[in-house]
């Protein structure tokens, strides 16, 4: 990165080495106005957040703004994390809500729905997915795009009904109906 962020942490400081500072440590440092810790946090988490946001919104400027708002909020509110749950989940919670706020202000937006083209899976992937989801994977994929979007928003992103409604630009009632429909379809498929 232009300001030397890449070189700030050693390339392996992904947090996966026991000797790297944990995200929790970094956050405490950021709460104490430590710029270097903030830079490491950015190097670690901004990339995957950007990719995940991209899967929710096709407009790169909106994604950029959401990402920027997220990290400004992290800098200002690092002290508020309070050790509830994991840091990445907390970061995503901030990011998705920022994205929703930005999208709500725009009359039309290019929110991506789940891709539905079947792709050939490797044998390994099939086994692993089978272990994780079993037949639910297939059932999930057979849901219509609107139902998938609702499932993604409420289950995967952990949004409330209200937030999901704002993200998808549909009324809250519709979110509830679709969730109920998705649930019953999945239950049918699994039984």
């Amino acid at each position: 990165m232009g300001h030397g962020v890449d070189g700030v942490a050693n390339p392996g400081a992904t947090g996966s080495n026991p000797s790297d500072p944990t995200d929790a440590t970094l956050l405490s440092a950021v709460a104490g106005a430590d710029r270097d810790a903030f830079a490491v946090l950015y190097t670690r988490h901004a990339p995957w957040l950007q990719v995940r946001l991209r899967r929710r919104c096709g407009d790169p400027d909106v994604v950029a703004e959401a990402l920027q708002d997220t990290f400004v909020a992290v800098w200002r509110g690092a002290g508020r994390w309070g050790r509830r749950g994991e840091v990445p989940a907390w970061l995503w919670g901030i990011a998705i809500r920022r994205l929703i706020d930005l999208l709500a202000r725009r009359p039309s937006h290019d929110a991506l729905t789940a891709a539905s083209d079947p792709v050939v899976r490797s044998a390994e992937e099939q086994v692993l997915l089978g272990v994780e989801y079993g037949d639910a994977a297939g059932a999930l994929n057979r849901l219509s795009p609107e139902l998938q979007a609702v499932v993604r928003a409420t289950v995967l992103d952990g949004l409330t009904t209200r937030e999901a409604a704002r993200l998808l630009h549909i009324p809250q009632g519709t979110v509830k109906t679709r969730m109920a429909r998705a649930r019953s379809l999945l239950r049918q498929a699994l039984s």
Binding site: E86, P88, L129, L156
Partner: peptide, 19 residues
């Protein structure tokens, strides 16, 4: 964006926990 919902879900959940 070439993955279906199930695998996207899987990957995203995994990423939350794996540095």
């Amino acid at each position: 964006g070439r993955l279906d919902l199930a695998r996207t879900t899987s990957v995203e959940q995994h990423l939350l926990g794996c540095g």
